[in-house]
């Protein structure tokens, strides 16, 4: 039967391979005496969750949001604020983060979605900055300098995240859950409408769909999922600052998607892993790593549209002798 699944299956397999490889990172890192790799891999997975959430609106919904890092910030600050109030439970923090993100996303999304194209990019960017400045000037939470957490969150009273390994596996579990949820969602009725709107908003209206409610819903879902990444980012760094939501972060998240290839979920995840890995690698090599990183981005944009997925596809075509 013809449906979306046969076409997605190879990507699903690749995603499972990625999960399996990630799962064996801690024992291997311990074995070769480089426990730092576990920390790096945790960061990779946190940003993979964020990139997956952005892929829902950018890749499937064709909404190029340049303010997605704001939701990373909502997640991180939810941890900071709640732990200060004595609420350390991870699940409660995630719920609160999602609620805050959803509220901000409903309002700003409803306004942003009145526009298209470069307007949408600029408006989402401006709303992201608005959230950024809010936390910068919020002196009770450390303002510009940010604030250190006293301890990592607990899960149902158990200090699961205290160890590097515990944090790693909880993050991995969340990554798998977010991926699986989004994978199902993109195949669902809702996912079809969203993807259809990306392909032709006119056609969708001509068969009786008004795109706005679907786009807004996707925007809110993406915000909530990104807030989860923010909660984990705060736990990983044991520190929260407005820098998490700067527009450079939003740009980086777009970079992850474009490098990995948009609209396939697996590409977003791979792109996040590669980007964070590249950053960490280049940063060890030189303090001016951004120079090299920026050059790579320019070159990819100029010479390899579609990112790595596009590159692989083209190589495949050559190999296929077409």
């Amino acid at each position: 039967m013809s449906d979306l699944r046969p076409r997605l299956a190879p990507r699903l397999k690749l995603a499972l391979v990625i999960f399996a490889l990630l799962a064996v990172v801690p024992p291997i890192a311990q074995a070769i005496g480089e426990p730092f790799l576990i920390v790096v891999a945790t960061r990779m997975m946190v940003f993979a969750i964020a990139a997956l959430s952005l892929d829902l609106i950018l890749g499937y919904g064709a909404m190029v949001s340049f303010g997605h890092a704001a939701y990373l910030g909502f997640g991180a600050y939810a941890v900071a604020i709640l732990s200060r109030a004595g609420i350390n439970d991870l699940l409660l923090q995630i719920l609160a983060a999602m609620a805050a993100a959803a509220l901000f996303a409903v309002v700003t999304g409803a306004i942003s979605l009145r526009t298209r194209g470069v307007y949408f990019i600029m408006i989402t960017l401006a709303f992201g900055q608005m959230a950024f400045f809010f936390f910068v000037s919020f002196s009770a939470l450390g303002g510009d300098d940010g604030v250190a957490l006293r301890a990592r969150s607990t899960v149902l009273g158990i200090p699961l995240l205290q160890t590097t390994q515990g944090l790693f596996y909880v993050t991995l579990a969340l990554l798998v859950a977010v991926f699986a949820g989004l994978y199902r969602l993109t195949l669902s009725r809702f996912g079809r409408v969203l993807t259809g709107t990306r392909e032709s908003a006119l056609r969708m209206q001509a068969i009786g769909f008004r795109p706005f409610p679907y786009q807004l819903t996707a925007y809110v879902i993406a915000a909530c999922l990104c807030a989860i990444a923010g909660v984990m980012l705060a736990n990983q760094a044991v520190y929260v600052s407005p820098a998490y939501m700067s527009w450079h972060r939003s740009g980086e998240m777009i970079v992850m998607l474009v490098l990995g290839g948009i609209g396939s979920l697996t590409g977003a995840m791979a792109g996040a892993l590669i980007t964070v890995g590249l950053e960490e690698g280049l940063a060890r090599w030189s303090e001016h790593w951004r120079l090299g990183f920026g050059l790579i981005l320019v070159l990819v944009a100029l010479f390899s549209p579609g990112g790595l997925t596009g590159l692989l596809r083209r190589l495949n075509l050559i190999r296929g002798g077409k």
Partner: peptide, 9 residues
Amino acid sequence: LDQVLATFG
């Protein structure tokens, strides 16, 4: 998207 990527770079 390509324009964002290149100019961000």
